[in-house]
Amino acid sequence: MELEKIDEEDGKLRFVVKDSSPAMMNAIRRISMNQIPVLAIEDVGIIENSSALFDEIVAQRLGQIPLVFDPKKFDAREECDCEEGCVNCEAKFTLQKEGPGKVYSGDIVSESDDVEILYDGIPITELDENQEIELEATAIVSIGEDHSKHQAAISSYQYYPIIDVDQEELTDDEKEECVEVCPRNVFEVDDGKLKIVDEKRCTLCKECVQETDFDGITVTSDEEKFIFKIESVSSLNPEDILEKTAEILDGKAEKVIGKLG
């Protein structure tokens, strides 16, 4: 298996994988979405909530807020040596605000120095005059399989496209049609020839094949080569997620081998 990075922007990583199989790709996809430990608010103690949203809804919204944390410093609550929760398995927060006005995720105060709120502008609730909210919250580390608020990334993969163009077979009109009909702008006409600008953009929709009545252009897929996308939906960056995924997959494989004796 060989990886080659295509690009990375706004927490979205794309790379090409050579010599692999859909089974392997799916294992990476599922582990990167389901099995990576991520910190999120789990327990909320409401002291006062006179806002329009019910306590449960406020707690559910708090849980979904992405938190910045150091994955090396946190253990899962069940695996921690302590019994009642300590700094190694829990992070505490407080929130106190009086109306009128909106309550944002930026109003939450973290009690530990190395845990922060990733986005300050997430609206939690809205307070009218004489309404107030006061609460304490505890965040724990868990995995996406347990609850989707702990999901680290959104991952997907597709076969690598193979686009064959027969220049002789296509008329000039058909070439122009191909450029126009392609929703991902894969083609361009240059010097009377239909050229492929970037085959990695192709999503194998085959609009171009249909447009030319199925001759002159063929779109097939390389079944051992993939384009893989990882988009982070937590504070972890996609490369770290991929590294952690490999580590977890390795651990799981070791476990199976161990059981086989």
Partner: peptide, 20 residues
């Protein structure tokens, strides 16, 4: 009611983008 913190289908955090 109020904009969800994360996208209901995919789980991407979107709440902070609503006001803009």
């Amino acid at each position: 009611m109020i904009i969800p913190v994360r996208c209901i289908s995919c789980g991407k955090p979107v709440g902070h983008l609503w006001e803009e």
